[in-house]
């Protein structure tokens, strides 16, 4: 089957199952967004705490590293006896997976703020809270956002595995497609995922631009 023929078969599969597609896409997007937002809510404050003392940093980064090393499938397998099948265990798995990039980048971003800048701020009479809010976080923002974007893109891919514990998402088509050697179905699940990854990356880039400022856009990006 030629490329053109495959793609047109994919398109017609997608259009003829459009309602299902929308459901799967919604499930997929929900898994990714909710897990990443939860990861931001947990990892950024945790990263801030970690930069305040070395012991906390070792513990936090240690846990984050372990969470990242364990395969998602294994996390899902571990969560499954506790939470059963479906959306929630999938979410827990994805959340765990999204933590580390955001956490390490928050720590790296905050620690890489020039200490002279901080000394100047302190010497001018900013409180430690003001230094964090007005100086450190804004300056670390590009690095933190790089972590968020990494997590989001990673999770678009990882969310395909949610299918295995009944979490839904585009994995349903991809994995069924693989099992049935149904290439159009597989691609109808896979290609939107790729576009979704690109789309989310751009979305977070836009949010970053809105929150941050132009002078820092060129700053090099560090990922964990």
């Amino acid at each position: 089957m030629g490329v053109i023929a495959t793609l047109s078969a994919t398109l017609s599969y997608l259009l003829s199952h459009f309602d299902t597609f929308l459901t799967l896409l919604r499930e997929h997007l929900t898994l990714v967004l909710v897990s990443v937002v939860l990861a931001i809510v947990v990892a950024v404050p945790l990263g801030i705490v970690a930069t305040r003392n070395d012991h906390a940093k070792r513990v936090v980064l240690g846990i984050g590293n372990i969470a990242q090393t364990v395969p998602t499938l294994a996390i899902i397998a571990l969560v499954f006896p506790l939470l059963g099948l479906g959306f929630l265990p999938s979410l827990v798995g994805l959340f765990t997976y999204a933590l580390l990039p955001i956490l390490t980048n928050t720590v790296t971003g905050l620690e890489n703020v020039d200490e002279n800048t901080v000394a100047a701020a302190r010497g001018m009479g900013m409180t430690e809270n003001q230094i964090l809010r007005k100086i450190k976080l804004p300056l670390a923002l590009p690095v933190i956002f790089a972590g968020i974007r990494t997590s989001a893109v990673l999770n678009v891919g990882t969310a395909y595995l949610a299918f295995f514990i009944g979490g839904g998402g585009l994995g349903v088509w991809v994995i069924t497609g693989i099992s049935l050697f149904d290439t159009p179905q597989l691609l109808a699940g896979a290609i939107p995922g790729a576009l979704l990854a690109i789309g989310l990356d751009s979305l977070f880039a836009l949010i970053e631009r809105y929150l941050g400022n132009d002078s820092l856009q060129d700053q090099t990006v560090v990922t964990g």
């Binding site: 020039d114 002279n116 800048t117 901080v118 000394a119 100047a120 701020a121 302190r122 010497g123 001018m124 009479g125 900013m126 409180t127 007005k134 100086i135 804004p138 300056l139 923002l141 941050g212 400022n213 002078s215 820092l216």
Partner: peptide, 20 residues
């Protein structure tokens, strides 16, 4: 401490301007 520092101007060699 904070009030005292706000009363005192501070200039360092590394300048330490806020780039953002």
């Amino acid at each position: 401490t904070v009030e005292l520092r706000r009363d005192i101007g501070y200039v360092i060699q590394e300048i330490g301007l806020f780039d953002h």
